[in-house]
Design a protein around this nucleic acid. Structure first.
Lengths: 212, 212
DNA sequence: AAAAAACTTGACCGTATGGTCAGATATGTA
DNA sequence: TACATATCTGACCATACGGTCAAGTTTTTT
């Protein structure tokens, strides 16, 4: 219907421009940091006049908030790959795979998250204390049960999680260093495969499992 | 004052003030990023007037350079703990220990390094292409030899190094997140011991070694 | 003692930044 | 068509920043 189409477009316009701006902002925040990211540069990358950015996002901080929230949501959704029904080998294997994929497909997001945490999480502290804490505690409990059932070695679950997070996100956050040590070239598909396999192999074997 | 005290101070004065400024700058750069770190704030932390900062360091960038260089030097010195004469178990074990110790004692430095890399290493690219590349290639060769001698599992040496770097530095860079998930409290001595042991155990076992 | 060198600092300056706003234009509604 | 609402944008502003400088004070040298 007419009114349907109209209101669809009315919506699309707004959300589409917001998407363009958010993508530009993610990239600029990742590469320049919060303070170093100028609204002018974000506008240039988004190919829009600066005043237009402020039409859709009241302040630079609002825009930054949105960017960080988006990343957290993506990670939280990926975290559901850590399906504790599957048992340790399959659950961890899938989770690591998923995190490695995100390191490749969403490096900017990972970088923004990393600097946010490094700077003391001024914006997303509530997320750390809420959703992340809850999720971590829940998964830790399951890991603990696996250990008690003799399904894997006895390891403090928190440190296992930190190892998975740090190792996988390293391929996004330190991508520039990795590229430099790789003759200045970004990883090929084959190299990403090897990276994924190496990470999975060491971690799974390291806690007493055989990789799938 | 006695003359030898005076002449002791003569020397100490310059380098001592520089040290105070460098320490303040390291902290501020770590917590606010390069662009977010104002010379005024560095001056306040150092408890000196802003103009005095510029007397010892010509520009903010010079100061930043010094900070990053210092960290790199400290890490490179620690890298000598990776003594390939010792064989894989002892060499890797000592290197991980050393890196964990530095994560605890030099968290600001680690954070500055991390953001520098995340932002594409605008300042220290030459170090990456020089010393770091050289060191990595040298150690990779030794790891390769261990593998060929059947002293450890067959793993791409680069990924083993990345795992050690990422995991250990995570305890510095993401210290805020770790603290938040630790009931808001920093790690105790005992908790650091467990962290070190967990990391060593998983990595060493993960590549087919028994922890020492 | 006096000249030189090193250090300290408040006041100042040009620039770049985040944000505003009024007016123009496009889009949807009746 | 006439009206209303959403979108766009150049020009503008107050503020905060890195850096300078001249006038001082302290320290070292002769």
């Amino acid at each position: 219907m007419v009114s349907n189409t109209v209101s669809f477009h009315k919506f699309a316009k707004r959300s589409q421009n917001q998407k363009i701006i958010l993508a530009a902002a993610e990239k600029v925040f990742a590469e320049a940091g919060y303070a170093g990211a100028t609204t002018q540069l974000i506008a240039d990358v988004a190919n829009l006049p600066k005043a237009n950015i402020h039409y859709y996002f009241k302040t630079k901080e609002d825009l930054y908030r949105q960017v960080v929230y988006n990343i957290f949501d993506i990670w939280m959704e990926a975290a559901s790959a850590f399906d504790t029904e599957l048992g340790p080998r399959e659950a961890l294997s899938r989770y690591i795979d998923k995190k490695m994929d995100l390191a490749r497909t969403h490096p900017y997001g990972s970088k923004v998250w990393a600097t946010e945490i490094i700077h003391g999480a001024p914006i997303i502290q509530d997320y750390l204390e809420g959703q992340l804490l809850e999720w971590s505690q829940d998964r830790s409990k399951h890991i603990q049960r696996w250990i008690e059932n003799g399904e894997m070695d006895s390891i403090d679950p928190a440190h296992l999680l930190y190892m998975i997070w740090s190792t996988t996100q390293h391929y996004a956050d330190f991508g520039h260093q990795i590229e430099t040590l790789n003759a200045g070239k970004p990883y090929s598909d084959a190299q990403w495969q090897i990276a994924k396999l190496s990470v999975k192999t060491i971690i799974l074997k390291g806690i007493g499992l055989t990789p799938s």
